[in-house]
Amino acid sequence: MEYTFKNQIIIDNQKIGFNNPCYIIAEIGINHNGDLELAKKLIDAAVYAGVNAVKFQKRHLDNIYQKNILENPTLESQGTEILIEVLKEVEFTDDDFKKIISYCKEKSITFLCTPWDIPSVDFLERFNVPAYKISSADLTNFPLIKYISKLKKPMIISTGMSTIEEIEKTVDFVKNENVPLILLHCNSTYPSPIDLLNLSLIPTLREKFNIPIGYSGHESEITPSIMAANIGSIVIERHITLDKTMKGLDQAASLEPNDFKKLVQEIRICEKAKGNPIKKMTRGEILQREVLGKSIVCSSDIKRGDIFSERNIDVKTPARGISPQYYFELIGKKSTRDIKKGEYLQMDDLK
């Protein structure tokens, strides 16, 4: 099946594309620490910041890890041991998710979620989520991607921890499924060092794959994310927290509410400044031009038949006559009329 490229993708009635406002996602992830009230506060913070959507994560650990590792996490690396313990502690119940989704509807903000396994997809489908986010860790998980592809909903895939060859293979796989796809450039270090973000890859990915490209940032600052939006990212995803010093794996790489709000505001200002690729004087510029612009004027009286030369013409402000750009074209021509000193020359004087 030939892939149908979509310049514009719709998620929950929001148009996302190169000519639309940047779609901004506040990744709550597991920053709620398993506390439903904290999750609601994070949703409130996202609404305050002015984002388009919040995103959570849904997983069933027994579908992700082998049984012996879950029973004894010390069999693997220390990192795996710590991660499993945290995930066991923070995972919401199905009832909790129902309440979160209901709260998002109440606050008029789009609920998105990253399913880490197929049973989580089935659960989320009960709520008709408008799109699916695939984590960087699952960019190579073709069984999961295939399962989600059958739903024919927009898919957003992060590219952290992946080689360009793996990204190519996944993009080809999803294109073959003919699913609306947004690819997010990403560095999966928490927090990410600024000098390793390689944001210049964003327009390269767009040109290479001919699909919309976004950015999932894990840096501590907001400037790189603003830059990403300015060079073509149609989606910006950042983690949100109430306090960077809170307990949790992702808190340090997250933005606090005021910083997140500033990020959104700065992106919106840049979008206004971006405008259209045309050169046209504004009304204000026209007024300024009249005051500050230059004209060719007569520096002495000129009679009909006299030759224009550097001795009888000059350049002066304001811009009420012929532009100085025609100064050297005028030199050597005969005047077709009598002109007084100080009078502005006009286009007819070039003939």
Rank of each mutant, 00 (worst) to 15 (best):
G275D: 02
N63P: 00
G284F: 14
I194Y: 14
A53I: 15
M155W: 01
N68E: 04
G284I: 15
N31Y: 00
D306R: 04
V264G: 02
I16A: 14
I134V: 03
D44C: 08
I43F: 11
R59F: 14
I234K: 13
C298D: 13
Y147S: 07
S77D: 07
K175R: 03
K105W: 10
C113A: 12
L196A: 14
P257W: 01
F142C: 10
A49N: 04
I43M: 07
L184K: 04
R304W: 03
F260Q: 01
V51M: 04
P180W: 00
D62P: 02
Q14V: 14
D122T: 05
G50V: 12
E27M: 05
S225P: 01
A53Q: 07
V121T: 04
E221I: 06
W116A: 12
V86T: 15
V291C: 13
P193S: 11
I211F: 01
T336P: 11
K15G: 13
I167E: 01
H185D: 03
M281V: 13
N68D: 06
K280W: 00
Y3H: 02
I109T: 04
F56T: 10
E106G: 13
I240L: 06
V51Y: 10
I100A: 08
A45F: 11
P115C: 07
F173G: 10
I286Q: 12
P224D: 08
A45S: 05
Q66S: 06
Q325K: 05
E168G: 09
N230V: 08
E81C: 15
V291S: 07
A131L: 05
Y103Q: 03
I30P: 07
F308P: 03
Q14R: 09
L249E: 10
A46G: 01
G321I: 13
